[in-house]
Design a protein around this nucleic acid. Sequence first.
RNA 1: GGCGAGAUAGCUCAGCUGGCUAGAGCACACGGUUCAUACCCGUGUUGUCGUGGGUUCAAGUCCCUCUCUCGCUACCA
Length: 661
Amino acid sequence: MPQNKGPFYMTTAITYTSGKPHIGNTYEIVLADSIARYKRQEGYDVYFQTGTDEHGQKVELKAEEVGVTPQEFVDEVSTEVKRIWDLMNTSYDKFIRTTDNDHKKQVQKIFKKLYDKGDIYKGEYQGMYCTPCEAFFTPSQLVDGKCPDCGRECQPAKEEAYFFKMSKYADRLIKHIETHPEFIQPESRKNEMMNNFLKVGLQDLCVSRTSFKWGVPVDFDDKHVVYVWIDALTNYITGLGYDADGNNDEKFNKYWPADLHLIGKDILRFHTIYWPILLMALDIELPKQIFGHPWLLQGDGKMSKSKGNVIYADDLVKLFGVDAVRYFVLHEMPFEYDGVISWELLVERINSELANTLGNLVNRTIAMSNKYFDGVVNKTGADTTGSDANLDFDAQLKTLVTSVKQKVQENMKTLHVSYAIYNIFLLFKRCNKYIDETMPWVLAKDESQQERLQEVLYNLVESITIGANLLAPFMPETTDRILAQLYPDNPASGVRDFDDLGTFGLRESGIKVTKSPEILFARLELEDVLKQVEELQKAQEETEDVYPEVEKKSEITIDDFDKVQIQVGEVLKCEPVKKSKKLLVSQIRVGKEIRQIVSGIANYYKPEEMVGKKVAVITNLKPCKLCGVESQGMILAAGDDKGNLSVMTVDKDIVSGSEIC
RNA sequence: GGCGAGAUAGCUCAGCUGGCUAGAGCACACGGUUCAUACCCGUGUUGUCGUGGGUUCAAGUCCCUCUCUCGCUACCA
């Protein structure tokens, strides 16, 4: 067993439960999992926490839309998140929910503690308020000075709120960041935080809200709920059993301070400024490192949100398998800048690295062992005896294979996960080259070379064993599958201690490999994949986005409705409006009169299609000019999110001019 | 607007404190091989190192100008 290197506490951000997580969110948990597994392999006592952030206005609204309680809503989403995390084969030790009772209790205690201490005080939140939306916005959120949701004017307004005295601890934090260069990673992020916030002076942070109810109530002032900062960030300590009164759980004493908070680059500010200051106020040690990872973007336009084809982990796993997806996101994601995911890239990576380099290597090695020695792998010591050092293939192979462990260690120390994987694959590539150098099929033809041939195959199986063990944190299932084939009678015997991965030759002679090698990763045809993707997306559209999102208007009375006059009109004539691409102008008989009405339907109806239709017309709308053509009313039509449009016609034949009500 | 980062082969990038003919992977071409998932191995092509100027015996590598791209710019969980 590797020696115990001590506790290692790491966390991911907790996922917000306003909707289903897509591959971008999934990236983080896979990255975190590979680090956790790696640290365990190295001998650390790892505690790996993830979870869901479940309060707030957005959840409240979403739940209302769907017609369930917020609790019911988050229960479902949280379960879904957990399901996906499990699907990705992630090895978290704790899944915390901010709706957990013990968490909520501590949030209240922490809030009170900070209030009693004087670090939280009651004040007024000032912002731009949109009355119909009942929401506050900051000036920077406004679009052209108007509400980003509904586009209406906003008014400056005030709301009672509790504030946290950020500035009090700013100097201490600046000093900490300056003396701990590893605290914020990547380093360029550190500069952003310093330059944009710390150096220009911190504003106090609003930590409570009265505008929504779905949150942890402030126990001494129940108009307020605790706002996201204190509610969500504290999960990192409450999950370990922190107690504001000092009765901490053993786990907290053992694992805090956290060794690593892994988060997306978008929430670095909260974790590198608010969170440390919160901890300072609570007199708790700061975490050792915060890593803001970049994003996996959908690059080539073939997977854009506007097209409704967002990638979900489920689909990827269905198409490629868990480890292929893990490999892709880990390998493609650089350390500092955003990575790109596309179907083309996925297929390319899977084919060239997983199927060709790794899968084929394992397959050909096993096939030869069976073909030449009935599956038995023996170490004979018959190495290359040539005097030319350049021809000493065995030594070269062994040197490379045994050097990878250290490279992986170096890469992982700085969280350069993609480099670590790259280095492991160099090992497999070297093995393929070794086969070409030693040419086992030539040795097989020569009776006197039997021992040499055995040694060659032994070296391959041993090398692959080491590579498979190094791969375990990143592609655990693949490691198991390889070892199951190389050690079919006792796969566990193929598992090595991390400390032994720099040593060559630990496999005992006489062990057989499997008789029936299984393809690890099948080669894919891009065309087939794209076809399957299309089918999946069709299915997705049918189940998910069938109903358009319609913004709710405020309630009206029957009298309000009565103000609108709607009548049946028969389209007599219809032609395009010359200056416009979208407009058609119709002559419509409404009872005795004939009206000219302009409508934005040219993309959906040809003028001749309109003629003869009996449509619903608003007849008391104030006339106006569209593209220079007067319109005396409006044809009613239904439109969805996807650009479909249908004019409202009457079901039975009814005389034009009849009133609709 | 402010602060910061970057611009190197068709694509993704490496090139530390300036030093001899600018690199890797993928892609492409050719050759080899047949144990293997038409796979693997080898060789090779392509670059005015964003623009213009400067420092130097010597500059992707340092300084200045300009152009372009990207990140951050405080209460969205």
